[in-house]
């Protein structure tokens, strides 16, 4: 089975899990495809929520869920990152829920999108590394969480901007772009296309 097929299966599988979130049997099943990263269905659901918090869908544009960007993030982490970076990423992902409970007393996976947005923004913009210490005890490793969230943002944005959806429907990229012009006047209110 190639990676593409695995991903397809994974998408079906994790989609199913989201419909039955209380199913303990599959919840911590390490998904075969991600043996290396030790990503469980539960972590996958956290990642999906994270991706969708970074790029949600709206009435005009589809977002991370529809584009399965969490799959793209995992493939990139699994194939293109060093074992050490993978370890930090996975640890951060595992601890995100715990961090969410400590900071907001809410479960990240089930919190409203407004609250999720607030929490993730807080993690990305955090300047004080001492806050995650409760007394002298380190509750969770905040740096790992921040690495995971930042890396996920980077890859989610990359996956989004290089998705078939964006490159076909929003900012068209043409394999055969037509003649080159070195000096074209920009029309008023013309939208810039990074692939134009």
């Amino acid at each position: 089975m190639n990676r593409r097929d695995i991903l397809k299966q994974l998408a079906i599988l994790s989609g199913g899990i989201m419909l039955v979130p209380s199913c303990d049997f599959s919840k911590n099943d390490v998904l075969k495809a991600y043996d290396n990263l030790q990503i469980t269905a539960d972590h996958k659901a956290t990642l999906q929520k994270l991706c969708n918090t970074i790029i949600p869908s709206d009435t005009d544009h589809i977002g991370a869920d529809e584009l399965k960007l969490s799959d793209f993030v995992l493939v990139m982490i699994n194939d293109c990152y060093s074992p050490e970076d993978q370890r930090i990423f996975t640890e951060g992902l595992k601890n995100l829920d715990q961090y969410s409970l400590e900071q907001t007393r809410q479960n990240f996976q089930s919190m409203s999108s407004a609250h999720a947005n607030e929490l993730i923004n807080q993690i990305l913009n955090h300047s004080d590394p001492d806050v995650e210490h409760s007394g002298d005890q380190v509750v969770v490793d905040f740096e790992q969480i921040r690495y995971c969230v930042r890396t996920t943002k980077h890859l989610t944005v990359q996956g989004y901007m290089t998705s078939e959806y964006i490159m076909k429907e929003v900012m068209p990229y043409k394999l055969v772009p037509g003649p080159f012009h070195g000096k074209l006047r920009i029309e008023e209110n013309e939208k810039a296309n990074i692939y134009g």
Binding site: T53, I54, I55, P56, D58, H61, G63, S113, N117, I120, N121, L124, K153, V157, Y160, M161, V170, M171, I186, K191, A192, I194
Partner: peptide, 14 residues
């Protein structure tokens, strides 16, 4: 992130 990021991504400027 969220709508703000999306709006930024979809409206690049010269």
């Amino acid at each position: 992130i969220g709508e703000e990021l999306k709006s930024n991504l979809l409206n690049p400027k010269y």
